[in-house]
Design a protein around this nucleic acid. Structure first.
Lengths: 239, 239
DNA sequence: GAGTGGTCTAGACCACGAG
DNA sequence: TCGTGGTCTAGACCACTCA
């Protein structure tokens, strides 16, 4: 038996997809919707929370619920053969960057395989598509590999590590989870929107970790793509 | 200013991590907890929903809220050089498999790059670690490449496509989202637990798609790992 | 200041699980 | 049957946005 929440969410979804509510438009107020569907406000709000989690609407405190513009899905291309790239359409990306010096501790020391309290440089990036943020990255580099000038003007900061000793291996670990409070505010997403969390560790030919990056990608507007081409030898080498 | 929900969630989290509530144990009833924290039941329940989303507790309708056993994190190894594997510890995995014949339509036809209504074989797998499900896969193969005998006894069914014309390329696309209703029941997870959704397309040397797989991995117990080794040529070929 | 969403209350009633 | 969680109500009060 479908709950009222689901019934209402289905109906609103349908009205959005058929264009009865158009992109960018404000929905009727929650009080109006509640009386239209003859439910209490908490019930109506729980229905809206579903749509919000699907990225269909955006809630703006004090001004209303808005139908979101159909989202440009952005693809993070993994594999590290080249610098990771964002493939997008039409809208240009820009990045804000902030570099900080700090010392490795517990988790970070393990990732970078350095002793605790080793000097690191952290680069904190937020990527924007137009005005809305679309990804968040924390990149850690041993300080002696960090760019000499503290100014890191653009996303190329990410690539700097690749110009140093040649990379031998890139490991990328992905998981899905709900965002932390910090990510909610930085990416301006809802607490109920899943994010793709990506940890990338790059190693040079000597086995030294030259970069560790923690990326967070909102699930409604980003995905990650890995392409593996198989050589003949690889194919036959396995059983 | 922290909401009561967050305050309560923090306190319960702390009590679980310090062992005040132990793994497998039942929490006090929601009514008891609500009066202990002097909040109404909806408020208390919203705090429990947070913990549930983090995979710390498991709600069992009619019997109570239970502290979950610390979860074995399972890693899906991507890249397709070998058959995808699950690295786990201690607990053996087993798989239930169900094969069905069907016709490609819209989305599936596009993925497999075949005309609509082409004959396909769908293999529907649920992987279990002990008694609890840990992943869900739908694997689609053009019917003429499907195993001749309809019995597909174990996960090797997944590998069959690899014995046919040699694979040339594997593409894996990952995204994070909340689970569908079907996934909630099949994986016995909560609606608020993010899942990692993985679409894998394998192509042979002629460019024909020999397999498309849709995998769903619960975010609290699985992640995906991609390792790229870079050849010298690849490194220098890029700018 | 008027209108919006955000949080919370103190219940009611239903559905499920175990004895 | 009884205790559990699941859903829902009809409000109250606060915080935010915008004119």
């Amino acid at each position: 038996m479908p709950s009222r929440r689901d019934t209402i969410a289905d109906d609103l979804r349908h009205q959005i997809s058929t264009g009865h509510f158009k992109a960018g438009e404000r929905l009727p107020s929650e009080a109006q919707l509640a009386s239209r569907y003859a439910v209490s406000t908490p019930t109506l709000r729980s229905a809206l929370a579903l749509l919000q989690g699907e990225g269909l609407i955006e809630k703006l405190h004090g001004s209303g619920n808005f139908v979101r513009h159909p989202l440009h899905r952005i693809t993070y291309t993994g594999g590290g053969g080249e610098a990771p790239t964002w493939s997008t359409r039409s809208t240009p990306l820009h990045v804000t960057v902030r570099a900080t010096n700090l010392e490795a501790h517990d988790h970070l020391a393990g990732l970078l395989n350095v002793p605790p309290r080793s000097p690191l440089t952290e680069v904190f990036c937020i990527t924007y598509e137009g005005k809305s943020p679309h990804s968040l990255a924390r990149i850690y580099v041993p300080r002696d590999l960090a760019p000499a000038d503290s100014s890191v003007p653009d996303e190329r900061g990410i690539r700097l590590a690749e110009l140093r000793p040649p990379l031998a291996e890139v490991q990328e670990r992905l998981s899905a989870r709900l965002p932390t409070q910090e990510e909610v505010t930085a990416l301006r997403i809802s607490t109920s929107l899943a994010v793709l969390s990506l940890t990338r560790v790059a190693t040079d030919a000597t086995g030294r970790v030259v970069e560790a990056a923690l990326l967070v990608l909102p699930g409604d507007r980003a995905d990650a793509l890995f392409t593996t081409r198989l050589m003949a030898e690889e194919r036959s080498s396995k059983e």
